[in-house]
Nucleic acid binder design. Structure first.
Length: 105
DNA sequence: CCGGTGACGCGCG
DNA sequence: GCGCGCGCCACCG
């Protein structure tokens, strides 16, 4: 895919089971290190038909926390999905990126 | 083109 | 370690 959204989706699909990455890193892989914000915009815009094909829940912010706002339930769902993959939340909200982070070049 | 919006990130104090 | 402010980008009128 050559559109910005398409590139974001392609990369998210590559995130391995049980791992997570950040919006900023995805932007980096696309070649636009400062487009983290746009990446988040793209994820919230994932077409329903692709919801089950794209592991959007494996994308969190650089601090290792879920960053969804104004979407009641979505943040809780994301956390639940991640825990099902074996990812651990310290203090109930933070992920240790040194253990579960996926940051390829 | 301009302005508003937002699943971000980073530097400061 | 926390809150704020600001810059960045794509998208939509």
């Amino acid at each position: 895919m050559k559109t910005f959204y398409g590139k974001v989706y392609d990369i998210v699909k590559q995130i391995p089971f049980g791992k997570v990455t950040s919006y900023g890193h995805i932007a980096l892989l696309i070649g636009k290190p400062n487009a983290a914000r746009a990446v988040g915009y793209a994820l919230k815009a994932i077409p329903l038909e692709l919801k089950d094909e794209i592991p959007w829940h494996r994308v969190i912010n650089s601090k290792g926390e879920i960053s969804i706002k104004n979407k009641p339930g979505a943040d809780i769902l994301q956390k639940k999905n991640l825990e099902e993959e074996g990812i651990v939340f310290e203090n109930g909200s933070k992920v240790d990126l040194n253990k579960f982070g996926w940051f390829p070049n």
